[in-house]
Design a protein around this nucleic acid. Sequence first.
DNA 1: TATAAAATTTAGTCTGACCTAAATTTTATT
DNA 2: AATAAAATTTAGGTCAGACTAAATTTTATA
Lengths: 220, 220
Amino acid sequence: MPEIITQSIQDYLKHIYELNEHGGSASTNDLAARLNIAPASVTGMLQKLASSKPALVVYKKHQGATLTKSGEKAALEVIRHHRLLETFLVTTLGYSWDEVHTEADKLEHVISEDFEARMAEALGNPTRDPHGELIPTADLTMPADKSRPLASLRTDETATIQRVNSRDPNLLRHLDELGLIPNVQLEVIAHSTFDNNLTIKSGRKTHVLGLNITTKIFVI
Amino acid sequence: MPEIITQSIQDYLKHIYELNEHGGSASTNDLAARLNIAPASVTGMLQKLASSKPALVVYKKHQGATLTKSGEKAALEVIRHHRLLETFLVTTLGYSWDEVHTEADKLEHVISEDFEARMAEALGNPTRDPHGELIPTADLTMPADKSRPLASLRTDETATIQRVNSRDPNLLRHLDELGLIPNVQLEVIAHSTFDNNLTIKSGRKTHVLGLNITTKIFVI
DNA sequence: TATAAAATTTAGTCTGACCTAAATTTTATT
DNA sequence: AATAAAATTTAGGTCAGACTAAATTTTATA
């Protein structure tokens, strides 16, 4: 029970969680890239996390890592902190959605449970952060997500933006300028089979978006 | 210029600053006690801080430490963070003045300058924190303080509480219950030469306070 | 299926910030 | 001033979490 979950462990767990959502298990290299750390260092940490008292991770040589139940709880705790913080920063300190990530990345490890609870209450227990990402509930469950990438839509389909899965400030600022933010409706006007560009109409504006963008925007 | 001021260095500087305010230089033992660290460890760190590229501390064997100009700036930066955070926690998240210290102690090392600036603005550039302590200005100057300890007052003197210099939650809660908080007026009714108790009247209430309390309350 | 390329792990190091125990210096007391 | 007590420093060690270089394994390709 008394395991010490340090800040860097929290970071590992958070990124393993996110990588697990996509493909199956989180590879050493992907983790290293996300954490800005040498792959060798990741190996060492994964071995440690896999053999800690209550294992936080299931790890098989050359096959990457998966979270255990307790690892997932710990990850969701950090993610809840992160997303509540982002929401808090936007609504109470006027941050824009492209600025919140960096700040939340630092604060998420440091705030108390009390702080978390006070934020949640002050914000009216929000279910999504400023990017539209789901906020894990107080009992550390991740609500189901039904959205699909904008890239999967075809001509004449219509949808509503639910979330933007990117932490790149430039992309976020750009989308903000285009008015492509959560809850905005759009219609696919055309699809190019060559480069997979999508031409979409939103309000009275039309945009042509490449895969780099359409795979980051999720709609419903 | 590129010196790395880690979290623990920030803690050292902050406490050296506070100890310097009282007596002259901060002794190894006092620092150790405040930081909850073995004295030997403090010695090592002081030597390091004294011989870093821009020295942060002036240190003489067996005589404790003093801050250099750059050390003081760094300390004031942390203290500004801390006191702004306390104010912020009270006004935007409904914390009480006895709860803010712990949280601010962690956050102070982590927030960005941007966060600091946004808080200051949102709060209307406050000059004092919830305990009445002065907040260093944005250009890292500590305003002059003219208050004196309540313990120094004598019968018939009257004064206004300016600040309460304690981080003990129990004491703070107690004072809050007594209504002895910043900006409250009081009058000294009696002074005991034996135990230095002060009998004070504030509003319609009368209290007898020992040195343990009267040296923590500062008035003007 | 051999082999080159990519991914991963092993082995050995380093650094920051702490620790304990022993040695030394300073301060206080007779 | 001698000496006991308190404060401080030195010396040697630990631990977490990173690193590099070399070794190994897996995957992809000719």
